[in-house]
């Protein structure tokens, strides 16, 4: 039995809504993710996927239930958890290398040492030669690479990815899906990846957790045993894609 890295026990989250009502976003979510497992959380458009990420990251507190990461209860933002954002959230005033080295710099790591690991991750995500560029000069796919390198460089034990490829065009998206698997295989981490794209989920995941719409709860789970690298148009891929797709709630 491998180690459980992310454990959510019965977490719910409500926000105060208009005229004193409460809006329940997450309802009784329990999940556990093992070390180095690649789990994709798949849910329809407007459900509380980002809220789930924020709760695990410690950026928000659940209304009830609790979250532990690597055995530690989460009560505040914790650098042991890396986050990759949909809108990249890169610091626009920092170059690629300073963005990637931000976490180590906050920890007070010495410059020489920092430079070495920063370069390692820039090379790993395929951005060699762009060390001194500012984010504004990079394409959407390259910015996501910086975001991934920045999260990796802080050496977290788990990575949360919040629809990181949602804003990319279709071709770049396929490329980045391949890249994220390649990077993960080169440097194993526990990954929780959120998406609303069934094909992306089937391509990436060891396990897919399907969420319902608001209030969000877990509908079902799929283990994905297809060998990597996966073929988007193989028969097994397409049939699993159909099964997963059928499990998704239809909402207008």
């Amino acid at each position: 039995m491998s180690k459980e890295m992310i454990v959510c026990k019965g977490i719910s989250k409500s926000f105060p809504g208009a005229n004193g009502s409460t809006l329940e976003v997450l309802k009784d979510i329990s999940l556990s993710i093992n070390e180095n497992e690649f789990v994709v959380v798949l849910g329809p458009g407007q459900c509380g996927k980002t809220t789930l990420i924020n709760l695990i990251a410690g950026l928000e507190m659940p209304t009830s239930g609790n979250v532990t990461v690597a055995g530690n209860p989460i009560t505040k933002p914790n650098p042991d958890i890396g986050v990759v954002y949909q809108k990249t959230a890169l610091f626009p005033w920092l170059s690629v290398q300073s963005n990637v080295g931000f976490g180590p710099m906050m920890k007070g790591m010495k410059k020489d040492e920092r430079k070495k690991i920063v370069q390692h991750y820039i090379d790993l995500v395929g951005l060699t030669g762009f060390e001194k560029s500012y984010p504004i000069k990079l394409s959407g796919g390259m910015r996501q690479r910086v975001g991934i390198a920045r999260a990796y460089c802080n050496n977290p034990s788990v990575l949360l990815m919040d629809e990181p490829f949602g804003h990319l065009d279709a071709q770049t998206r396929y490329l980045m899906q391949e890249e994220v698997v390649r990077i993960w295989e080169a440097d194993k981490k526990t990954i929780l990846f959120v998406t609303n794209n069934v094909e992306e989920a089937v391509y990436l995941a060891d396990r897919i957790i399907v969420l319902s719409n608001c209030p969000t709860h877990i509908v079902t789970e799929f283990d994905v045993t297809l060998p990597r690298p996966r073929d988007y148009v193989s028969r097994d891929f397409l049939s699993l894609r159909k099964t997963v797709n059928d499990s998704l709630e239809r909402t207008r």
Partner: peptide, 23 residues
Amino acid sequence: TLVGAARMLGANDFQVFVFVTIP
């Protein structure tokens, strides 16, 4: 979001102020 990202990377209040708010 940038403040959140800085916190997730381990920045404390003072570091958020110096490295995010000011620039």
